[in-house]
Amino acid sequence: LTVHVGNVTYHFDNPEQAEEWAKRMAKKYQGQIHVKDGQFRIE
């Protein structure tokens, strides 16, 4: 699973971990989480 934050990409084996990280990053950067094809993108 991949989480994109700006132009930085993080890889996770565990979906719960990826989702948790995406939520934390979205809160930190006050962005929206977009989920597409098993990838999380924070914008």
Results as ranks from 00 to 15, higher is better:
Asp37Pro: 00
Asp37Leu: 03
Leu1Pro: 12
Val3Glu: 00
Lys36Phe: 13
His11Trp: 12
Ile42Trp: 10
Glu16Leu: 12
Glu43Leu: 13
His34Glu: 10
Ile42Gln: 04
Trp21Asp: 00
Val35Ser: 05
Val5Gly: 01
Gly31Ala: 13
Ile42Lys: 05
Asp13Lys: 09
His34Leu: 11
Val5Ile: 13
Val5His: 07
Val35Lys: 05
Val8Ala: 08
Asp13Trp: 06
Lys23Leu: 10
Gly31Cys: 15
Val8Gly: 02
Gln17Glu: 14
Arg41Ser: 13
Gln32Pro: 04
His4Thr: 14
Phe12Arg: 00
Asp37Ile: 01
Gln30Val: 05
Tyr29Phe: 10
Gly6Asn: 09
Ile42Pro: 07
Val8Phe: 13
Leu1Val: 14
Ala18Ile: 04
Tyr29Asn: 03
Gln30Ile: 06
Asn7Pro: 05
Thr9Glu: 08
Thr2Asn: 05
Thr9Asn: 03
Ala26Asp: 03
Lys36Thr: 13
Gln32Phe: 06
Phe40Met: 14
Lys23Tyr: 07
Val8Ile: 12
His11Tyr: 13
His34Ala: 10
His4Trp: 12
Met25Asn: 02
Tyr29Ile: 09
Gln32Asp: 08
Asp37Phe: 01
Asp37Arg: 00
Gly38Val: 02
His4Glu: 04
Phe12Glu: 00
Gln39Gly: 14
Val5Leu: 10
Leu1Trp: 15
Gln32Tyr: 07
Asp13Tyr: 05
Glu19Lys: 10
Val5Asp: 02
Lys36Asp: 11
Phe12Ile: 00
Ala18Phe: 11
Leu1Tyr: 15
Asn14Val: 07
Val5Tyr: 09
Phe40Arg: 08
Val3Thr: 00
Val3Gln: 00
His34Asn: 10
Tyr29Val: 08
Asn14Gly: 04
Asp37Asn: 07
Tyr29Gly: 03
Glu20Gly: 03
Ala18Gln: 03
Met25Thr: 03
Arg41Phe: 15
Glu19Asp: 04
His4Phe: 08
Phe12Ala: 00
Val35Asn: 04
Asp13Phe: 06
His34Asp: 06
Arg24Tyr: 13
Ala26Pro: 01
Thr2Leu: 11
Glu16Ser: 11
Ile33Asn: 02
His11Cys: 15
Ala18Met: 06
Asn7Met: 10
Tyr29Ser: 03
Lys27Ala: 13
Glu43Asn: 06
Gln17Tyr: 09
Gln30Ser: 10
Trp21Gly: 00
Gly38Lys: 02
Glu19Gln: 09
Glu20Ile: 06
Pro15Trp: 13
Arg41Leu: 15
Val5Pro: 00
His34Phe: 13
Pro15Asp: 05
Glu19Pro: 03
Glu16Gly: 07
Gln30Gly: 15
Ala18Val: 04
Asn7Gly: 11
Ile33Pro: 02
Thr2Gln: 10
Pro15Cys: 12
Lys23Trp: 06
Ile42Gly: 07
Asp13Ile: 06
Trp21Asn: 01
Ala18Asn: 00
Ile33Met: 05
Gln32Arg: 08
Gln17Thr: 10
His34Ser: 13
Ala18Gly: 05
Gly31Pro: 02
Pro15Leu: 14
Arg24Trp: 09
His4Tyr: 08
Met25Phe: 06
Lys28Gln: 07
Lys27Phe: 04
His11Asp: 03
Ile33Gln: 02
Tyr29Ala: 03
Tyr10Val: 05
Ile42Ser: 06
Gly31Asp: 04
Met25Ile: 10
His4Val: 14
Asp13Asn: 12
Pro15Asn: 07
Phe12His: 00
Trp21Gln: 01
Gln32Cys: 12
Ala18Pro: 00
Gln17Ile: 08
Gln39Arg: 04
Lys27Cys: 15
Glu19Thr: 06
Glu19Met: 14
Glu43His: 08
Gln17Cys: 15
Gly31Glu: 05
